[in-house]
């Protein structure tokens, strides 16, 4: 059966508490998931009080502040700090999003902001989840141009309309996905069947290649996708679309792939 409760060794306990010393009125508290593979301890939520006069406006600023000034053992991924690399995806205040583009001010919890890793994944350490399976699923859809025709001597041509199908006329097309996996880990269907269901992120990418007019493997791609688990585990729950920090619409792209498969039947 699908598991609805955490296994014994994953139950979260109460952690350490760090108070901000010599701080003024402007303070905020963060509760952060901590777990290390060394030793047998269960995960815990550590509480950090931060002097907001010394910290930047984004959640990532708070995490960096904690690592630099309070607790250097805190582990998280980050790189570009401007929402383009997708490294700092985590569950902040109950929603999967990017720590670098989430303003502390915009958190629904005024204080005591809870930060945990992306849900339903094995944890490597603290806020770092294991993304290997999702990267492998991405590789399995062969996300590269496939052609049988001899390569042209110049660029492969594409009309602006066809390019817009991928990039989005408003810049929110499937090619704009940064593979942060906020959508996939927000999907209950992926939680229960992530071993076989490709999940919104990979299916959004699959749609990007299915709809690329320069690609010559559309039929083979649809053959590979037509599967009760790989594709049809999507039950249009739409958590993916509401989670996407880039404002993309994976649910719609999955529906487009289903439509393409329907089209070739009739």
């Amino acid at each position: 059966m699908a598991k609805f409760t955490l296994p014994k060794n994953s139950k979260i306990g109460k952690g350490k508490s760090f108070k901000a010393e010599n701080a003024g009125e402007n303070k905020k508290t963060f509760r952060i998931y901590r777990w290390t593979p060394d030793g047998e301890e269960n995960p815990r939520l550590d509480t950090y009080e931060i002097d907001m006069d010394k910290c930047g406006p984004m959640v990532l600023d708070a995490l960096i502040y904690i690592k630099n000034n309070i607790d250097p053992t805190l582990t998280f991924r980050r790189s570009c700090r401007e929402g383009i690399c997708g490294s700092c995806a985590m569950n902040i205040d109950g929603t999967n999003t990017l720590a670098c583009t989430k303003a502390i001010e915009d958190c629904r919890s005024d204080d005591n902001i809870k930060i945990t890793p992306l849900p339903h994944l094995p944890v490597v350490k603290d806020l770092v989840p294991d993304l290997n399976h999702m990267y492998a699923q991405y590789a399995s859809i062969e996300p590269w141009m496939k052609t049988d025709s001899p390569p042209p001597s110049q660029e492969r041509l594409q009309s602006p309309e066809d390019a817009n199908r991928l990039n989005g006329a408003d810049g929110h097309g499937p090619a704009m996905c940064i593979l942060c996996y906020c959508c996939t880990t927000a999907c209950p269907s992926y939680w229960w069947n992530g071993d076989r269901y490709l999940g919104p992120s990979t299916l959004l990418q699959a749609s990007r290649w299915v709809h690329d007019t320069r690609d010559e493997a559309t039929g083979e791609r649809l053959d590979q996708l037509e599967d009760p688990f790989k594709l049809y585990r999507c039950h249009t729950i739409m958590n993916c679309t509401s989670a996407c920090p880039k404002g993309l619409n994976p649910a719609k792209e999955i529906a487009e792939v289903k439509k393409r498969i329907a089209e070739r039947q009739h």
Partner: peptide, 15 residues
Amino acid sequence: PLARAKGLGSAKSGY
């Protein structure tokens, strides 16, 4: 990881 992700391949049904 790729072997695990590919699994038994596509059932080519479900439509």
